[in-house]
């Protein structure tokens, strides 16, 4: 076996996994704080990226566009809390899950209604080409952009960690995630907190949208990356930020290795199901995912 090629597959898999993690993070945030499995996260990614790119194409400065998009996502987050979650409070999880699928349709339609259904290109200034130095010296192709995405993801996770660990709101978020009632009892206003969570998830969606948009173009198919994040979630556990990252790395690396080294023997295309089967195998050992919180069940 050619070790350089193996390293290349492994590293590109890990970096692809980071991209999945970016999407998975949004799911985790919302699930943690409100117990909602938000299927609309993919649509939010699409919505954010499309809004951003349309603003830039209309001549807006990059950073202003980021801020405006962020503001839009906050408004969307608050609106979702107000119009969808609040009336459905105390409903079973499956109902909320369904509601977020409905939300997916609304967001998809709204985004295309506002900005049209054309795909857009998005350049962040980091070309998606191999790092020359590595290619020359070690004959290993690692994309600059992937490394950049990895750094961004790292920064995002670090930022979220600091936010969660040290700030008053962050602490409140974790408190709400742990125990709604007790959080209410100490005077944490759930609704505001939920609105904040959705807004933060909107921010994460924007980052993910920028990354994925720069990679594949900003188009409707961005909504499908939610499907890529699902095995990451079950592997890592729905409630764990760390799980989203580790899960992403494992899924990314193993699916690439499987496709490259196993795929040719079975006709290829195994990427479509391999991550799920892998996650399933993990679940059989740990039913709540790698880092998920163990649920205590008593009769």
């Amino acid at each position: 076996m050619n070790w350089q090629f193996f390293v290349e597959v492994l590293v590109s898999g890990l970096l692809a996994g980071i991209m999945y993690s970016l999407v998975a993070l949004g799911f985790v945030l919302i699930y943690k704080a409100s117990g909602v499995f938000n299927f609309a996260q993919g649509a939010m990614v699409f919505f954010a990226a499309l809004t951003f790119v349309s603003l830039v194409e209309r001549g807006m400065n990059f950073w202003i566009a980021v801020v405006v998009t962020l503001a839009v996502m906050v408004v969307v987050g608050i609106a979702i809390e107000r119009l969808v979650l609040r009336p459905l409070v105390n409903q079973p999880q499956i109902t909320l899950f369904m509601a977020t699928i409905g939300l997916t349709f609304v967001l998809e339609g709204l985004a295309q209604l506002l900005w049209g259904s054309q795909p857009h290109g998005l350049e962040l200034g980091i070309p998606d080409v191999p790092i020359q130095w590595l290619a020359d010296n070690a004959n290993i192709n690692i994309s600059q952009f992937d490394v950049f995405a990895g750094l961004i993801a790292g920064a995002l996770v670090a930022g979220l960690a600091v936010f969660f660990q040290t700030t008053r709101i962050g602490r409140a978020l974790r408190a709400v995630a742990d125990d709604h009632q007790a959080a209410l009892a100490v005077g944490i206003p759930l609704r505001q907190i939920w609105a904040i969570v959705w807004a933060v998830a909107g921010f994460v969606a924007l980052v993910a949208g920028l990354m994925w948009g720069a990679r594949n173009g900003v188009q409707f198919a961005l909504t499908f990356i939610a499907l890529k994040a699902l095995p990451v979630l079950i592997l890592g556990g729905f409630e764990s930020v760390a799980g989203a990252i580790v899960g992403g790395l494992i899924i990314g690396a193993s699916e690439k290795l499987a496709e490259v080294y196993l795929g040719p023997y079975v006709g290829g295309g195994i990427e479509s199901w391999f991550p799920y089967v892998l996650a399933l195998a993990f679940l059989l050992i740990r039913p709540e995912g790698l880092f998920g919180e163990r649920r205590i069940e008593r009769v």
Binding site: R171, D179, A185
Partner: peptide, 14 residues
Amino acid sequence: HCFQHLTVEENLLT
């Protein structure tokens, strides 16, 4: 009803 995953001090801070 303590926040189980928070430390004692974080609990107090909330």
